[in-house]
């Protein structure tokens, strides 16, 4: 059957039943497809965080030197973390309101390990800008916490969203007290 004009692939389908020898053709193509798919994964997975990036996932911070009413910003995983030593007044105001009324209901005490020390990620939950309110003299917004200037989201003294487009409260990163004055984030 030395024919060139007809399509041999098509005639096989129409002409005769696939037999064992046709099976091997299909199996070979299938095997090629499986092999091809297998090499795609490493090419994609290389974009996930590398081992050294994952290993740097914790930061130790000395919080003993933050004066009452002051705040510091530290870096964790390339993002700012706000650490505020809250005044008694700020703590009181954070607890004064009924959390059920909030957009993202959360009690203040579930957001802190020690009431005077608030640790939150300094990343607005709307679209990722860094809110103002860390430095003295910066706008803190109408709830005296932080204020995101990008799209106008004010946060309160517990870092909870009160108004504006942001959907959730400022995230509290995992952290633990290594000693009285030192925390480890991550």
């Amino acid at each position: 059957m030395a024919n060139t004009n007809s399509k041999p692939g098509a005639s096989d389908v129409d002409g005769h039943e696939p037999d064992r020898r046709d099976f091997i053709v299909v199996a070979t193509y299938a095997m090629g497809a499986v092999g091809g798919a297998a090499v795609v994964w490493p090419l994609i997975d290389q974009m996930n965080p590398a081992a050294d990036t994952l290993a740097l996932a914790s930061t130790e911070v000395d919080v003993s030197k933050i004066a009452e009413g002051q705040a510091i910003t530290v870096t964790w995983r390339g993002k700012p973390v706000f650490i505020r030593h809250r005044t008694a007044d700020e703590i009181m105001r954070a607890n004064a309101i009924d959390s059920a009324e909030l957009r993202d209901p959360e009690e203040d005490e579930t957001r802190v390990q020690k009431p005077e020390l608030l640790v939150v990620l300094g990343v607005c939950t709307h679209l990722g800008c860094v809110p103002l309110g860390q430095k003295t003299g910066e706008v803190k917004g109408e709830y005296d916490g932080w204020f995101c200037p990008c799209h106008g989201s004010p946060y309160d003294t517990s870092g909870r969203i009160r108004k504006g487009p942001a959907p959730t409260n400022l995230e509290v990163p995992p952290y633990s007290f290594l000693s009285d004055g030192v925390i480890r984030i991550g």
């Binding site: 059957m1 030395a2 020898r21 091997i24 053709v25 199996a27 070979t28 095997m31 092999g35």
Partner: peptide, 22 residues
């Protein structure tokens, strides 16, 4: 191991396809 099998299979698949010509 995988590629060795693939080589053998593609060889026989080739023979099967070319068998039409002879």
């Amino acid at each position: 191991f995988f590629l060795s099998i693939f080589l053998v299979m593609s060889y026989f698949a080739k023979r099967r396809v070319w068998a039409d010509l002879h």
